[in-house]
Amino acid sequence: MANFKISYREDTALFQNLWVKSWLGIFIAAMIVLPFLLSRYQLSILNGMGIAVIGALGLNLLIGYTGQISLGHGAFVAIGAYTTGLLAGTLGVPFIVALPVSGTTAALLSLIVGVPSLRLKGLYLALGTLAFGFIIEYVLFHWDLTRGDTGMAVPKIGAGGFFIETELQFFYLIMFFAALATLVAKNLARTKIGRSFVAIRDRDIAAEAMGISLSKYKIMAFAVSAFYAGVAGCLLAYYQKWIVPGNFDISLSIAYIAMIVLGGMGTILGSILGAILITGIPYGIVYLTDALRGTYPNLSGLIVDLKLGIFGLVIVLTLLFEPQGLVGIYRRIKVYWKTWPFKY
């Protein structure tokens, strides 16, 4: 299908052509119908993925678009979740207020790493954010307000007689916010802000020379990414109904990085694919072991033994054979079909 663009407006359009629009329509329809065909367990898997998509989008805006490395994304998810826990659990604040406040709190606290990021670069920034993550985890463990590793309860969403509590209801809620987050991210990426982010990533000194305020946009990138993480944390808190500091340790930060690296840095689609893959691996192992348990009990036991290694192996193999991530695979397949039967 030919795809010519005649105007700049067309080039930056959110949905580039009818083809994309119709696929999107089918996708939305599928998302509405799908939950009726799935079990509660399968819905719970999708819900986990939806929350991860929001967090991964935020991290990709920071790392993939702006080039600012953060190994402390889990800390911002924790800040969002604990803000929700304290607001909703202790003060009884409703969801509509708790959600933006959680995001905003995370964004405000992101200044703690955002401002130093003006001085720190690359690896030094990475380790600085890692340290920030450890310090947040330490505070959650040792402050009476956050109740140590016993954790705290988060009430249900809703008022009067109407509550969002089943997996199905959460599915629509989470998917709504995941879709919203995707739209906002996509919009952000095609505006001046997004282009400034990319300019900073590609060469920050050149960007500054062209009149892009480094301090403004770097801090903005941290704040937006933390806002996303805070929203993801808020949804996670409501969804899990109980939060403990152990939910947000370094493995969460690493998982988020794995999502965007495996999915594809600097692409919206990559964040989504990566979030689905990384969240999905443990469930894939569950289905595999259950399927093998009856016929090959030893093999299924061995897979449980190798669980950690399988996770590592998927990451390593994907990156060795496709360093651009899943988006790279997707693009290649697309190009292949577009040009078929020719090679180029």
């Binding site: 590793d149 954790g151 403990v244 152990g246 569950v286």
Partner: peptide, 24 residues
């Protein structure tokens, strides 16, 4: 609970994890 549909969890090792699953 959701996939195997068990009646009860007769053992769960780890206190932080146990706290986390009580609401569920």
């Amino acid at each position: 609970i959701l996939k195997d549909e068990v009646l009860a969890i007769a053992f769960n090792l780890g206190s932080a994890g146990s706290s986390a699953i009580v609401p569920l």
